[in-house]
Amino acid sequence: MEVSELTEALKDLVKTAYGDRVGTFKIQSVDEATSRARQKARSQLSKEQRLFIDRSLVPFRDWLIERDPEAAERVASGAPAPQDIETAVRAAEDHAAALLAPDLNEAETELLLARLKNGRIETIEERNSLRGAPLRFSNRHVRTMAGGFAIIFLGSGVAGVTAEVGTVVTIAGAAIFVWGFRKWKSGETTSNVPSVSVFKGGKIKREGPGAL
């Protein structure tokens, strides 16, 4: 097997396992059994075989970076590759070692082969959606949440004088906060008055992760 053939085999494995999904690799962490299998496999490899694997992983790593626009942009700026890329490369190294090691049992081989193909990819869209909208006071939903907090504190103070009224005020404040939080979390389109006014020829602005 040539270096390029092993590289292409690893690429094909990623394509088969993950299709066109691009984003952050979520590879299962190495447990004790996998660690033992890894050490056993590497101990059986000759110096030439280890060098062969290392040479095949260089273009494979570059290919993984090129698949992810955010990773490619980060590396192009001089920053190191994202950690998930390095983890995927280590999983590919385990896969290659399992293929070349001459004396692994079936269970050990499967543990090493499974690392790269049995993970998942969190897409760029999924990754960005988890970040949520920024907490900015210019966002009216953030101001609503702050107002809800203020009313809750007011209710706590009133409760010292009149328990029934304090309870009602606290409940109202909590309801306002929850409503504002849900709107903020959803990134709902809002008119950011007065900084952007639809009545003055401005544009309605989306304050979520896809904001322009």
Rank of each mutant, 00 (worst) to 15 (best):
I124E: 03
S197T: 13
F181G: 10
R21Q: 02
R182L: 09
A114V: 02
I27F: 06
S186F: 11
L45H: 02
I121L: 03
E126P: 02
L64E: 04
G208Y: 01
R90C: 01
Q83I: 13
V165W: 11
L135E: 05
N105P: 04
G173N: 10
F25P: 01
E66N: 05
R182Y: 02
I121S: 03
V142Y: 14
G157D: 12
E164D: 05
G19E: 06
A79G: 06
E66Y: 14
V3D: 10
T109I: 04
I53Y: 14
V178M: 08
L154K: 12
I65W: 11
P102H: 14
A175H: 13
D68K: 05
F60Y: 07
D68F: 03
D103P: 09
V22R: 07
P134F: 06
A146I: 08
L111M: 10
R74C: 06
E32D: 10
K47S: 10
K11F: 00
D84H: 05
T162C: 08
V178S: 11
L6S: 12
A146Y: 07
R143V: 03
G147D: 01
A92D: 01
N105A: 12
L51P: 15
V178R: 15
T34A: 10
L99A: 14
R206D: 02
S35D: 15
V158H: 03
I121N: 06
E122S: 06
S29F: 02
G147Y: 07
T167L: 14
V158Q: 03
V14F: 00
P194R: 05
L130Q: 13
E164Y: 10
D62A: 13
A159V: 04
